[in-house]
Design a protein around this nucleic acid. Structure first.
Lengths: 335, 335
DNA sequence: CTGTTAGCGCCTTCAA
DNA sequence: TTGAAGGCGCTAACAG
C-alpha cells in the first residue's frame, strides 16, 4: 500500500512532520542523528511524498512539458531520448504532448499545459511561424513559464531560448562540397510543406550556387516516400535531365531519390552525388550508404533541457540562440 | 496570469465554489441557467482548474505513465503516437519514462512513478522476464494501479493485461511462405540479446522448419547495423554457404543483410528471398523494397491505452491477452 | 535544531 | 439546486 503519508513517518520517527519534510528537502537543516532516524523510517515504510500535495504546497512540479509534432519522426524520437536522459539528472519528469492529429487550437492546448502546472516547456517542432512564435512568447510572459525551442527556430526575433544548428551554413557548406567535386547541375530536394529550417537550408544552398554562378534547381516534394518516389520518377522520366548533384533536406528523401535513380540505371555517386541531412539510421541502411550532414540531435535535446532547467532556476540565459556544431559525413554517395 | 482560481470564478458568477466545481464535474447537477452563467465566467476569466489541487482532492490525475525502453526505436515511437491519440480521447495526459541509460533499479523507479500519482501505467518493452513480470504484478496489486503491457508479453502467466500480435504464428506463417516458394535453406536472423517476442518468433520458425523436415539455421546477431554487417560478411564470406531464404526479426536487420548480400553479388529475391518483421519505414526505403510481416504497432498502442482506461474506470478486462491481427506484405524481396 | 500553524486549490459529503 | 465545511498531503514561515 502506498498509504504511508508524511504523518505516518513523523509518528514512527517520533518527530513532527516538518522535520520529515526538512530531511527530504533541506537535509542540512536537520541534526544528523534525527535525519538518519527519519531516513530509516522512510525506507522502512516505503514512503514516497505525494506529488500532488507537494506541488500544491510548493507551486513547483519538477515536471516539464515536451511538445512534439509527431513522435514517429526519427529526429523527434532521438531528441526526446536526449531530453529524457538530461531530465533525469535533475529528477525532472516529462509530460508528453503529441500535436499530431490534434484538432484543438494550439493556444488552448498550451493553456491546458500551463494548468497542468509544469515548470517549463520544451517545444520541438521543425516549423514555427510568426503567429506561433508570438503565441509561445505570450504564454511565456503571461504565465511566467519558461519555454525553450529545440531544433526549430524563428530567425526574426529572439525572445525565446533556442537550440539548433546553423542550417544555413550547413547547406552552404554541403553545396560547396558538391561544387568542389566538380558537379554542375546541383538540385535541392526540399519539402513542399513550409518549414523554417528547410527555408534556411534553401537559402544556404542558393548562396553557394549563386557564388558559383550556377543556376539553382529547387524541387519541392512530399516527405511521404510513396509520393515523392512518383514525383522523382516523373521529373527525371527520360533520364536526360542534366543532374549530377543532390542535397535533400531529409535523409529519407535522399534515400528515396537514390533508389529511384539507381532503378533508372544511374550510378551513385558517379553520375550523381547525393547528400542527406540529419544522419539518421536511414543513412546507414541505404545502399550505397548515404553521405550527409550530421546533426547532433540527441545533444540538441539534452542542451535544450539543460537550458530550460537553468531558466526554471531563475537564471536568465543571456544567449538566446544556441548553435550546436554540425559536421559533414562522407560515406558512399559522394566523393 | 493564471491566477484565476475557483474562488474568483465563484465570486464573479455569484455562486459558491461548490457550484463551480459541480458545473465542471457534474454539470447535470446544476441548474442550466446558473451553469451557463458559471461557464461564461470561466471562459471570461480563462479559468483552468489547478491540476495539483484537483488531483490532491480527487485522488485521480487523468495521467498515465508510459514506460519505454528507448524512444529511438521506430516501433516504440510509433506506438507512442497511437497511445497519444487515444489518450487524448479521454483527456488523459502522458508522463513519459525512458529506461535507456537508467541505472536506478526498476522497482525503485516504478515506486517513484506510483508516487507521481498516475492513474495507470503502460509498459512498452520488447523484453520482459520472470522477475520483471513479478515486479510489475506486485506494483499493480500493492498500489492498485492498473498496468497494461504493449507489444511485449510474458507467456507463462496472465495476470497483466497484454496487447500484442501472435508472433509465434506470424513467424510460422512467414516461414511457410518461404517453404512454399521452394526455398530449401532458410535462416532466421534474430538478436543475440534475449527478447521474449523474438523467442516466440524463433519457435514459430522452428515449428515450420521441423514440419517441412528441414534443418533450422538460427543466427544471433546484434541490432547494431555496423556490427551485424560485419557479422554477415564473415558468416557468408565465401558466398558458398547454401542459403536461399531469410527471416529477420527486425526490418533493419533484414535490410542490413540484404545490403551485405547484394554487395556480394547475390540477387534478391532470386538467390535469396527475404522477409522482415514490423513494416517500418526501413522496409519501404530499402532497395529492393522489403517484404515483411506487418504489425499494427500504432493500433497496439491505441488498444493498450483503451484497455488501460477501461481498467482505470474500474471495469475488469476479462480477456488478459489481446491479440491483434498481423498480415504478411509481399513487396520485392520475396516471390 | 525542531514543532506549530497556516494555507495551496479543489472535491465531496452533509444540510439547507 | 445550492452552500458550508472539512479535508487531501505537503511546504514554509514563524516561534521556540
Amino acid at each position: 500500500m502506498n498509504k504511508a503519508t508524511i504523518y505516518n513517518v513523523a509518528y514512527a520517527a517520533n518527530v513532527s512532520l516538518a522535520t520529515v519534510s526538512r530531511t527530504l528537502n533541506n537535509p542540512q537543516k536537520v541534526k544528523p542523528e534525527t535525519r538518519d532516524r527519519v531516513l530509516r523510517v522512510i525506507k522502512d515504510l516505503g514512503y514516497k511524498p505525494n506529488a500532488f500535495a507537494k506541488g500544491l504546497a510548493s507551486k513547483k512540479s519538477t515536471t516539464v512539458a515536451v511538445i512534439v509534432p509527431d513522435m514517429s519522426r526519427a529526429s523527434v524520437a532521438e531528441m526526446v531520448n536526449g531530453i529524457a536522459v538530461e531530465a533525469r539528472k535533475y529528477s525532472y519528469s516529462l509530460l508528453l504532448y503529441v500535436l499530431k492529429d490534434e484538432k484543438v487550437e494550439e493556444l488552448e492546448m498550451m493553456k491546458e499545459i500551463v494548468a497542468s502546472q509544469v515548470d517549463g516547456m520544451l517545444y520541438l517542432n521543425d516549423e514555427i511561424n510568426e503567429g506561433q512564435y508570438a503565441m509561445l512568447n505570450t504564454i511565456q510572459e503571461e504565465y511566467k513559464v519558461p519555454i525553450v525551442l529545440a531544433n526549430t527556430l524563428y530567425p526574426y526575433d529572439n525572445k525565446l531560448v533556442t537550440v539548433c544548428i546553423d542550417y544555413y551554413k550547413a547547406a552552404y557548406e554541403v553545396t560547396n562540397r558538391l561544387i568542389n567535386e566538380g558537379r554542375k547541375h546541383i538540385y535541392l530536394l526540399t519539402t513542399s510543406r513550409k518549414y523554417m529550417v528547410n527555408d534556411l537550408k534553401e537559402e544556404g544552398y542558393l548562396k553557394a550556387i549563386k557564388e558559383a554562378h550556377m543556376s539553382p534547381n529547387v524541387i519541392r516534394t512530399s516527405g511521404d516516400i510513396s509520393v515523392n518516389t512518383i514525383h522523382f520518377n516523373e521529373l527525371f522520366k527520360d533520364g536526360e535531365t542534366p543532374i549530377d548533384g543532390v542535397i535533400a533536406v531529409r535523409d529519407s528523401i535522399a534515400v528515396s531519390f537514390i533508389n529511384t535513380m539507381i532503378e533508372k540505371g544511374k550510378s551513385i555517386p558517379n553520375d550523381i552525388s547525393v547528400f542527406g541531412f540529419q544522419n539518421t539510421k536511414y543513412a546507414s541502411l541505404s545502399r550505397p550508404k548515404l553521405s550527409c550532414v550530421d546533426i547532433p540531435i540527441n545533444d540538441i535535446g539534452a542542451k535544450a533541457m539543460a537550458l530550460l532547467k537553468h531558466e526554471i532556476d531563475g537564471e536568465v540565459n543571456e544567449v538566446k540562440f544556441n548553435v550546436l556544431p554540425h559536421s559533414i559525413i562522407t560515406r558512399q554517395t559522394s566523393k
